[in-house]
């Protein structure tokens, strides 16, 4: 036995959900989709805006879920990718007059490269170390965006104001409603992509890495490739969320993308259930609406309410919304 080395069996970073349990049945999916389609017709514009934000965060949480639930790596730095996506969209639209729809693939591409590159150092890290590295990235991001060198493009501390697009084809609907449906469409596309990704060969390879890295590499899975790939894909999807966010909010500024955003995305994933893709929507609703509710309960205490709720989730429903959904399913089957 070597004297300086210590051998430990670390618990896995996440409790691994099985592949099947990462999605929900077709009926449930259709019901949720129908609700999402109809609701905007009956509510006020501000609520539509909030629902759009829920969808956008849901995409961001889904991307993190792909990374964590898919490959077992996890990140406290998603806000950085979100910021890069948002700035890509903002700069393309305001400086180059690019159509907002086209900014999405551009944001995805830029973020994919960024995520892929960040994935390289991340390769050597796991668990708390990766948390720390990504955490650092998230904290550094606003400062980097404020740098004088980029000020011409980024607008420095002031940020960029973005023009809100109108509904196309002469459709008679408000900008907010159009953006909602546009976001919904993108969300559905990304959800389908994500589900198929997990079912693909690459998805299986990633999940093997999640369950047992060393065994996976012994099975001949190209560890570096898939781990960086997972980072890249996750970053790309997060970038799309960021771009959508920029368009909907009509504004990007460094201080919109602080560590708090990264934490919110992370919490959304925990609340929704790690690795459970539909939970992303639940988690997103949680991070959009709960702070509001908390403010109502007690102004200034929202952080505490948030924290207490989070502990409640950890202790009472360790797999987040997935547990609750599973319970209701079981109850229904009994009846």
């Amino acid at each position: 036995m070597s004297t300086v080395q210590e051998s430990v069996t670390q618990p896995a970073a996440v409790v691994a959900p099985s592949k099947k349990s990462m999605t929900i049945g077709t009926t449930a999916t259709l019901v949720v989709l129908a609700l999402l389609l109809i609701t905007p017709l009956f509510v006020k514009n501000f609520f539509i805006f909030q629902m759009t934000m829920v969808l956008i965060y849901a995409i961001a949480i889904l991307s993190l879920n792909l990374l964590t639930g898919g490959s077992g790596q996890f990140s406290l730095g998603q806000s950085a990718f979100y910021a890069v996506g948002a700035y890509t969209a903002g700069i393309l639209m305001e400086h180059f007059g690019v159509n907002y729809v086209l900014t999405l693939p551009a944001a995805a591409l830029v973020c994919f490269i960024f995520g892929f590159l960040f994935g390289f150092p991340a390769l050597r890290l796991s668990g708390v170390y990766l948390a720390l590295a990504t955490f650092s990235l998230a904290v550094a991001m606003p400062q980097l965006l404020k740098l004088g060198v980029f000020e011409h493009w980024t607008g420095g501390v002031q940020g960029l104001v973005i023009t809100k697009p109108d509904a196309p084809f002469g459709l008679k609907m408000s900008q907010d409603m159009w953006l909602y449906y546009f976001t919904l469409f993108i969300s559905v596309v990304i959800y389908i992509l994500a589900v198929n990704l997990l079912r693909s060969r690459s998805g299986r390879a990633m999940m093997a890495i999640r369950d047992n890295q060393i065994a996976a590499s012994a099975m001949g899975i190209d560890l570096p490739l898939y781990k960086t790939l997972a980072f890249g894909i996750s970053a790309a999807f997060t970038g799309i969320a960021g771009a959508l966010g920029a368009i909907v909010v009509q504004f990007v500024a460094p201080d919109s993308f602080t560590i708090q955003l990264a934490v919110a995305i992370f919490l959304g994933m925990v609340v929704g259930g790690v690795g459970w893709l539909p939970g992303s929507l639940v988690g997103a609703a949680f991070i959009v609406f709960v702070p509001n509710v908390a403010e109502h309960i007690s102004k200034g205490l929202s952080g505490a309410v948030f924290g207490v709720l989070l502990f409640a989730v950890i202790f009472l429903v360790p797999h987040g919304a997935q547990t609750i959904f599973g319970l209701s399913l079981r109850v229904r089957k009994k009846q």
Partner: peptide, 8 residues
């Protein structure tokens, strides 16, 4: 798992 600790 680590993740739950981080959340905590």
């Amino acid at each position: 798992p680590v993740l739950v600790h981080v959340a905590g």
